[in-house]
Simulated scan of single mutants.
Amino acid sequence: MKVLLVEDDKTIAAGLDYSLQQEGYDTTICHDVACGKKQIKGNKFDLILLDVTLPDGSGYELCKMVRERSDTPIIFLTACDDEVNVVMGLDMGADDYITKPFRIRELISRIKSVLRRYQKDDESKSIIELGNIKINILEAKVYKNGEEINLTALEYRLLLTFINNIGQVLTRNQLLESIWDVAGDFVNDNTLTVYIKRIREKLEDDPQNPVIIKTVRGLGYKVGG
């Protein structure tokens, strides 16, 4: 779990660095906005802790920069609990704030709480439902009416291609490119037809009249939309 800490007080930063590492976090420390920007541009973090007041700017500037790029969790560390400052930070997209001085256990608790919220969001996004079909992306499992359906690696990869492009018509060439090297075998146009037929037999209530993987005549195939 990678954490970026931007804090100009080097004593506080060193203490937080030690405590976070003891909790198993991989920390990167910055003491100003310039360093923070460099790290945000060049690395991906799981959580960002921002001091509000920095020698060359403010944490708000970094928060705005992060939100333009991602939904990475952000917690403000502030010496001022003035309502205007707190609201400003939250309105800019921060997930929480903690007022200095604070106990390290309180900060760790806040961090875990924020990360749990994001984990739940990620889990909800990982479940795709198409009628009576449910695809759990995290587990790479497919269910029909609550019962698991066994798909081969190629069949699952093909289904995943459709899921990642819901509502879009995919040509046969696009589908072939998506599954080309999965099995290490040559996949030709006829093989693609066979795999789509197999997936329909496993997922559709009536494979002869598919409602999940639809044929768009002259163009290709489409799921949803």
Score class of each variant (00 low, 15 high):
residue 89 G to W: 02
residue 122 D to I: 00
residue 167 G to K: 02
residue 105 R to V: 13
residue 124 S to N: 07
residue 51 D to Q: 13
residue 131 G to S: 08
residue 106 E to W: 00
residue 55 P to R: 02
residue 72 T to Y: 01
residue 122 D to P: 05
residue 164 N to H: 15
residue 172 R to Q: 08
residue 107 L to V: 02
residue 95 D to P: 13
residue 76 F to V: 04
residue 61 E to A: 11
residue 155 E to Y: 04
residue 69 R to D: 15
residue 113 S to A: 06
residue 51 D to Y: 08
residue 78 T to H: 03
residue 76 F to N: 01
residue 165 N to S: 03
residue 92 M to H: 15
residue 167 G to D: 01
residue 96 D to F: 05
residue 113 S to G: 06
residue 98 I to H: 01
residue 108 I to N: 05
residue 128 I to F: 13
residue 122 D to Q: 05
residue 149 I to L: 09
residue 148 E to I: 04
residue 98 I to N: 06
residue 64 K to L: 14
residue 66 V to W: 07
residue 145 N to A: 15
residue 60 Y to I: 07
residue 52 V to D: 06
residue 117 R to A: 03
residue 164 N to V: 07
residue 137 I to A: 12
residue 172 R to M: 08
residue 130 L to E: 15
residue 149 I to D: 07
residue 80 C to E: 15
residue 160 L to V: 11
residue 168 Q to K: 12
residue 114 V to W: 00
residue 173 N to G: 01
residue 52 V to M: 10
residue 150 N to R: 14
residue 147 E to F: 12
residue 59 G to W: 00
residue 64 K to F: 12
residue 139 E to G: 13
residue 172 R to E: 15
residue 121 D to K: 15
residue 150 N to F: 09
residue 145 N to R: 15
residue 129 E to C: 13
residue 91 D to M: 07
residue 94 A to E: 00
residue 146 G to L: 09
residue 139 E to P: 11
residue 119 Q to H: 00
residue 135 I to F: 01
residue 107 L to H: 07
residue 65 M to D: 11
residue 156 Y to T: 05
residue 146 G to F: 10
residue 125 K to I: 02
residue 70 S to N: 10
residue 168 Q to D: 08
residue 106 E to F: 03
residue 104 I to P: 07
residue 72 T to D: 03
residue 99 T to G: 03
residue 140 A to I: 10
residue 115 L to E: 11
residue 146 G to Q: 10
residue 116 R to M: 07
residue 111 I to G: 00
residue 85 N to F: 07
residue 106 E to R: 14
residue 95 D to G: 11
residue 52 V to Q: 08
residue 68 E to N: 04
residue 112 K to W: 03
residue 63 C to A: 12
residue 143 Y to C: 04
residue 60 Y to Q: 08
residue 154 L to I: 13
residue 56 D to S: 11
residue 65 M to Q: 13
residue 117 R to E: 04
residue 67 R to Q: 09
residue 137 I to T: 12
residue 109 S to F: 11
residue 145 N to I: 06
residue 51 D to K: 13
residue 148 E to W: 09
residue 167 G to C: 02
residue 91 D to A: 02
residue 143 Y to K: 13
residue 52 V to G: 07
residue 141 K to Y: 00
residue 164 N to E: 15
residue 134 K to D: 09
residue 155 E to A: 10
residue 115 L to C: 02
residue 144 K to P: 15
residue 69 R to I: 06
residue 104 I to E: 06
residue 106 E to Q: 13
residue 66 V to E: 08
residue 78 T to G: 03
residue 84 V to K: 13
residue 172 R to D: 10
residue 140 A to W: 13
residue 133 I to Y: 09
residue 161 T to R: 12
residue 170 L to K: 01
residue 169 V to M: 03
residue 158 L to G: 00
residue 172 R to N: 07
residue 67 R to G: 10
residue 77 L to C: 01
residue 70 S to K: 10
residue 122 D to W: 00
residue 87 V to Q: 12
residue 155 E to M: 05
residue 76 F to K: 04
residue 139 E to V: 04
residue 67 R to I: 09
residue 152 T to C: 05
residue 165 N to D: 05
residue 144 K to I: 12
residue 73 P to I: 07
residue 72 T to S: 08
residue 131 G to A: 13
residue 82 D to I: 06
residue 143 Y to D: 14
residue 68 E to R: 10
residue 58 S to Q: 14
residue 170 L to Q: 01
residue 58 S to V: 09
residue 63 C to Y: 06
residue 125 K to V: 01
residue 116 R to S: 13
residue 86 V to Q: 05
residue 129 E to A: 14
residue 71 D to E: 11
